[in-house]
């Protein structure tokens, strides 16, 4: 799994700073930092390198991803359900629904693809 073999597009990552902390002895570190895993030598907070070793690699979001693309499933799935169109009635110009219904899916597919082409760049 080498999503960032060349480094992600936003490399190097923005610097992260340790949160401000009270270092007086006897004061417990804030709850958010009491996480398991390798700790810095003083046991107060982890270094960036140690943290990135334990953290799962960030999920890279594809540049062409869009929730609108789920719409594509409609013209793919509908023609694959014969129960929807396996009937004679209603007929149009005497052509059974089985035939003109499936042909009309072509208009549906074309309309959805046109919409997506304009909507998602």
């Amino acid at each position: 799994m080498t999503a960032n073999r060349y480094g992600p597009p936003n490399w190097p990552p923005p610097p992260t700073y340790p949160p401000y902390q009270d270092h007086r002895p006897g004061v417990a570190p804030p709850a958010a930092d009491r996480r398991p895993g390798p700790q810095h030598g003083t046991g107060e907070w982890r270094t960036i390198r140690e943290r990135s070793a334990t953290r799962r690699p960030a999920r890279v979001r594809r540049e062409d991803a869009s929730p609108w693309n789920w719409l594509l499933l409609v013209p793919i799935v509908l023609p694959l359900i014969p129960g929807l169109y396996n009937r004679i009635e209603p007929t149009v110009f005497g052509i059974p629904f089985f035939y003109w219904g499936q042909l009309s899916f072509a208009f549906l597919a074309s309309a959805i693809l046109t919409f997506l082409h304009l909507k998602v760049r």
Partner: peptide, 11 residues
């Protein structure tokens, strides 16, 4: 071929 040539384009 009609459903085939409809679903292929969204795919």
């Amino acid at each position: 071929p009609v459903p085939f040539l409809v679903i292929v384009y969204p795919m």
